[in-house]
Nucleic acid binder design. Structure first.
Lengths: 237, 237
DNA sequence: GGTACTAGATTTGCATACCAGACATGTATG
DNA sequence: CATACATGTCTGGTATGCAAATCTAGTACC
């Protein structure tokens, strides 16, 4: 214990990446990513004190992180029993998808009526980057895909709408990480991205919306397969 | 201090209404309502220890409530400075309205294609109740209005979508409480509700969506007036 | 062998103690 | 008079201790 006070040297912590701010939110982001990536298995127990020990902090920030995760339905806190990574619920995924489609379609329609040329250029640029992803690096595609959707929202000043989507999206992302290999082929997704930008550039909200809808419905194709392949990770229906 | 242990008799607490669960979430709901109703003024400081004393609890649950309120942008936590009720931001209200419209239009469209007769009956019933509200009891109308919208969502199994709306709605509700007297006349709002249900019953998603959109845009009419009338309660642009 | 019970270990919720940073105020200094 | 500075008091962030509920293991008993 070389530290004189409670505050730990930030660089000692495993989860300290480029994160800033106080420990609670940092832990939240770290655990959230771990759950989404499947590194923390559905059903697994997460005790406050255990996590606190592991990351050299106290129970307090851990507790705050747990509460946030519980609001997103990524963990469930059972008082006096324990906190557990929730199994993936098909219903939750579909609920999240529904809300995401509703918001994102509205955003894209706005973009189709008012996006600046610079934004369209940025989107085309992102699509080019997506094309350059080597076969098998599907994780990299996920990041670029997220950036693509976020860029659309920000291009019309809908940062708040994106924040709502971002929260909700966690449930969908768990599926995407599970289906890294047998999901919709990347070239097809890139085509869909292209259609979206085409609709935006053409100033055609209807077309852009339709393209966004079919793009966001791809997950409904892979979902049943994934649920069948990993029954242990899913909530029984 | 007649209590032997830390746990207080629940009935002693002011905010104990019909609330259940642990103290943190209860406090959250209570403070949230207080802010929405304007009983806690925008700009007002809320110290953790002060609130804890006032409601005979410790700082811990208060802290959890503050964090939740901060996520909804109802308060802002400034470390080592204080926590303050945020002034109403016109941009935040419009952001919330945009997302709400997107989600709720999607829900209503679903309702128009698959709502059961029993749900339609319930909605008509709610409209009748709204008509019976005596002049000047606008607060009662707010409750029935909320129930109307929630009923539509639940009638098509979109509880999750409603939960998202509910969170976001806080920003809009602050305006509605400020504009209790000079807002859109209640009979007009009831007409709009009727149009929505008509569209649903007719199985006409387009009509139901259009009615919902215009209904949810009413706030944009009153917003500038309110912002002009209560400049102190609003974030300077 | 099976069942009821008890003791211990864990769990989260809540309370309390301590810390560093921000701020207001009063004072000394130019 | 103005400015720099010391200081006391507030804040939220963190650490820790305690209580109640729950689960587990083992044991005694039938």
């Amino acid at each position: 214990m070389p530290e004189t006070s409670g505050k730990q040297a930030a660089s000692e912590r495993v989860f300290q990446q480029i994160d800033s701010g106080s420990i609670g939110p940092q832990l939240y982001r770290f655990l959230r990513e771990s759950i989404i990536r499947g590194e923390l298995q559905p059903g697994q127990a997460l005790s406050e004190s255990e996590v606190a020990r592991k990351y050299s902090t106290s129970r307090q920030p851990v507790r705050e992180a747990f509460i946030k995760l519980a609001e997103e339905r990524l963990v469930i806190i059972q008082p006096q029993r324990g906190t557990f990574v929730v199994k993936i619920s098909v219903a939750d995924v579909l609920d999240a998808r529904f809300v995401r489609e509703a918001i994102e379609v509205a955003v894209v329609q706005e973009a189709a009526t008012s996006a600046l040329p610079s934004a369209i250029k940025e989107l085309r640029n992102l699509i080019e980057q997506q094309k350059e992803i080597s076969h098998g690096h599907n994780v990299d595609f996920l990041a670029l895909d997220e950036e693509f959707h976020r860029t659309i929202a920000f291009s019309v000043g809908r940062a708040h709408a994106w924040r709502v989507i971002e929260n909700i999206k966690a449930q969908m992302d768990r599926i995407r990480y599970l289906s890294l290999d047998d999901a919709t082929p990347i070239p097809l997704l890139i085509d869909q991205h292209t259609r979206i930008v085409d609709g935006i550039e053409a100033g055609n909200p209807t077309e852009a919306a339709a393209a966004t809808r079919s793009h966001l419905r791809e997950i409904m194709v892979s979902l049943p397969n994934i649920a069948a392949r990993f029954p242990d990770l899913f909530e029984p229906i």
